[in-house]
């Protein structure tokens, strides 16, 4: 499938000489939902804002539909929409005026029917005459989405679309995103919620410290995310790992009393039962058991470490 967005070697410094993006290369395929993950300050918003023309980038090229976004900004911006991370809205305007204003900015003829449909779809129709300041945070976020969609973009950026949105609304939002995607809109979103990336995206990138350290199909990443660790604390320390126990891939702590064994929830079988049985057979008494699931943050760190190791090896 053809690339709707091509980012080549993009580097961005802010004025205080913070390097926010370093040699970013990324291609987005037409029609996909792409999730951009990364810890706070990784450069997600900077990347999106560079693509949308909200910040200037220093070097590299960005192309939308094979057109340079700087040289052909009129054409490329017309088909691009963005929902910013912050709730940047003018408090005293009404929802209706605000959304129609956005459509105008993007050079489109007024179309009240379309805007009406859009507001209804986002459950904002009964709020259309309210001033922005009279809306709740979640409603404001939806107004931002309506504004971004007001000119019927083909490429939509959602910078943490479900921050400050309650669980139920989040599900509604996901439906909206899926529906848009089905109607042919390519979507790039950032999120800190792994369920969100899981639920929506086809592919995922992890960005850290301005660098893209991984681009992968969602399913592959989920495998990594499905890893859990079981910690088994024994009354006495493990003297020797032999016989039955040698077939497991566990690690011991310094006291040799705590066994950490990692397994994957997504695989069809886990060997926890066997491990416990074998421990019992060898006469070990179990004091305590607990399990830990790697958080998104830990996965980031692990990925970054792996990435750094790779750099060192090469």
């Amino acid at each position: 499938m053809k690339n709707i967005l091509e980012i080549n070697n993009v580097t961005k410094f802010y004025k205080n000489s913070v390097k926010a993006l370093e040699n970013v290369n990324l291609n987005i395929k037409e029609g996909e939902i792409f999730a951009l993950l990364g810890p706070n300050g990784a450069g997600k918003s900077t990347l999106i804002n560079s693509i949308c023309g909200i910040v200037n980038f220093n070097t590299g090229t960005i192309k939308i539909n094979n057109m340079d976004i700087v040289k052909n900004y009129r054409t490329t911006r017309k088909i691009t929409g963005i929902v910013p991370q912050e709730l940047n809205l003018e408090s005293f305007e009404t929802v209706w005026n605000n959304v129609n204003y956005s459509r105008g900015l993007f050079g489109k003829k007024p179309d009240h029917n379309y805007i009406e449909k859009l507001l209804k779809q986002l459950s904002l129709w009964d709020k259309k005459d309210n001033k922005i300041k009279e809306l709740s945070g979640g409603m404001k976020r939806r107004v931002l989405i309506a504004k971004a969609l007001s000119h019927q973009p083909k490429l939509l950026f959602l910078d943490e679309p479900t921050a400050s949105v309650d669980v139920e609304l989040r599900k509604d939002m996901w439906d909206v995103v899926k529906k848009l995607n089905k109607d042919g809109v390519t979507i790039i979103l950032t999120t800190h919620y792994i369920e969100e990336a899981e639920e929506l995206s086809d592919r995922v990138a992890v960005i850290n410290d301005g660098k893209i350290i991984l681009v992968d199909e969602k399913d592959k990443l989920i495998k990594k995310l499905g890893e859990k660790t079981i910690k088994i604390e024994l009354f006495e320390s493990v003297k020797k790992i032999n016989g039955n126990l040698s077939k497991y891939n566990f690690t011991l702590d310094q006291t040799n009393k705590i066994i950490s064994h990692t397994y994957n929830l997504n695989s069809n079988t886990t060997d926890i039962t066997e491990l416990l049985n074998d421990l019992k057979k060898d006469g070990y008494k179990i004091k305590d058991i607990n399990t830990e699931q790697s958080s998104l943050e830990e996965i980031f760190i692990k990925l970054i470490q792996e990435n750094n190791n790779e750099l060192v090896r090469n």
């Binding site: 804002n49 949308c52 023309g53 909200i54 900004y73 009129r74 054409t75 911006r77 017309k78 691009t80 963005i82 910013p84 912050e86 940047n88 809205l89 003018e90 956005s102 900015l105 993007f106 050079g107 504004k147």
Partner: peptide, 17 residues
């Protein structure tokens, strides 16, 4: 004002010279 409230993002992202 739009610089202050950050609503300028939309003007910057729009196809406007």
């Amino acid at each position: 004002f739009p610089r202050f409230t950050n609503t300028i993002y939309e003007i910057l992202a729009a196809p406007l010279s």
